[in-house]
Design a protein around this nucleic acid. Sequence first.
DNA 1: ATGAAAGCGCTAACAG
DNA 2: CTGTTAGCGCTTTCAT
Lengths: 352, 352
Amino acid sequence: MKSEDVAKLAGVSRSTVSRVINNYSNVPDETRQRVMSVIEKYNYQPNNSARVLAGKGINTIGLFVVSIADKHNPNRIYQNNYFAPFVDAVVDTANALGYYVLIHTVYSEKDYLKVKSAFFQKRIDCGIIVGTEKDTGMVTEVIDAGFPIALIDYHIAQESKSTASGMNMAVINSRDFEGTVSAIEYLIDLGHRDIGIIRGRMNTYSGRQRFEAYRSVLREHGLKWEKEFVVKGEFLKNTAYREVGRLIKSGRLPTAIFSSSDDMAIGAMEAFKECGIKVPSDMSIVSFDDVPVASQIMPALTTVRVPVYDMAKKAVELLISNVEKKDTGISYFNFPTELIIRETCARRISKQ
Amino acid sequence: MKSEDVAKLAGVSRSTVSRVINNYSNVPDETRQRVMSVIEKYNYQPNNSARVLAGKGINTIGLFVVSIADKHNPNRIYQNNYFAPFVDAVVDTANALGYYVLIHTVYSEKDYLKVKSAFFQKRIDCGIIVGTEKDTGMVTEVIDAGFPIALIDYHIAQESKSTASGMNMAVINSRDFEGTVSAIEYLIDLGHRDIGIIRGRMNTYSGRQRFEAYRSVLREHGLKWEKEFVVKGEFLKNTAYREVGRLIKSGRLPTAIFSSSDDMAIGAMEAFKECGIKVPSDMSIVSFDDVPVASQIMPALTTVRVPVYDMAKKAVELLISNVEKKDTGISYFNFPTELIIRETCARRISKQ
DNA sequence: ATGAAAGCGCTAACAG
DNA sequence: CTGTTAGCGCTTTCAT
């Protein structure tokens, strides 16, 4: 069934049908009723591709989650507690504003082509990219082409800083530096002096920020950071588990560890548990994200909360406003974090 | 940039451009190269709406997650550990097969219109609905219109059983009855006689199946089921927490509880913990789903595993095969479940 | 092997 | 107020 059929049935022209569908004011109630009744009777809905082709917005927002490192893991992001909340928050907000969400995950370089295509083929009005790796030409290409885009957890590289007009970009991060500082100062306040770190991937914004904040805060407090206490977790629970296991076997342990993500903290806790090292009495752990599980495990994680929901909401709202008001520009947002104190940290017992 | 521009630049006609884009065989290598090089140079991608309008598939699969009861909860499904794995599995599988996923959540009756629209406006080739409530006209309308659809966790009502031709429907469930039986028989084997249940929503397939299996297996073992031991959890962690709290205050407790979902079991465990009732020594709990957290909490949940990934994968594969081969039909799948024994159940200590 | 032209279903400018 | 008409960008017969 197409608009022409409706028109015939209602005894009007296609234009009039179009007018009632798009709620134009200049159609008398009587006519509108007539058209509406056949629309309802036949359950008619306009073909979206045709509308788009004729100039309407597609009312769809793209959501791309980047998780390159998980490439070969069979059940991938859903093992990653960090992304699910983002996805839900975006879908929630977008749906509430009348938008559909087109989603695609990026596990390999090749997948970047799919996100590019989504923009260039006009499948979406705008898009959100979560966790982009650095040095991906794709992002610049999309931005340069003028597509509205929001980047969450993105490192603003030199090139993109060229504030060319016609660009529509929002960069949304949490204040990872601050958050990390508060977490580690909490550890220091508890008397810890030997503090290790489980690093995330260093080609992500959050991965780098958290590591740099770690080094910076130790330095400021006159503490040394030891290479051996830097564990490379890659933001993966299993990697953290394995690498922490290796650290334990090395024989020398810090008294506290800052983990760059909750998932890695959970992996670490497993490793400690298996080796009979008790959290928090033998080892304090503070981490980052505050994913839903953080409060459900035992002991409950002391962690830095990232306002995922607010960040996602902001991204969607900004984007939709961009699309509908056709306003243009570049904006940066840094959302505050908050240290949530639960059960994984203890005062350091000085070893006499 | 449109195909006409490419054509001009390459010195051919639009038809030829279209031919190379669609990989037609009847275009000589030399011409193909020429066209390809301008396509690459200008980063040309065909407008998807135009292609669709001209008869191509849209290569998009709809995913609709129904969670009516969570309507007024601000951060909704992402508090629900059950859905995230489905979403990820669907996106994963679809992406791997070259499809995008259009996602929309259903929190209210009104949202059903959006899923209907997605089909009728031809935004998607086919769709998956997870957790449909009973008695929703929408499903029948979509099926009757001939759109390929897969229903996960759906009760096959009378009406839809009319095997009309031209229908494209797959119903995919886990063997909830069997799974529940195995869980409860495990409890019985451990010596439990007073077994309670935390029910899910009774207008979902899984909610009903699990409850009916509970009653049936108790009956078969000559055990009575007591109304007071039936807790209404609505598949919501918080509701389960609250209702279990109420059960505890009632003063009379079973020695074991079957929870219709892991999330509710987690809520229940919190309630027990707060009242000093120890799991598993004072109270055994077995639940359903085996969501990722189930193994991460302490004590780790003994639960019935639902092969979420396989179910989602099956749905996507079936659907895409439907769309591409244009084959038609109705199929039913029931995936086996498996009892995963962990730490929340103990042998019943007979109270002398 | 390739171009011309029709048409997919809709919107919008134009005319009346 | 409403119909006519010209696209939107692509695919696909149909000729050649």
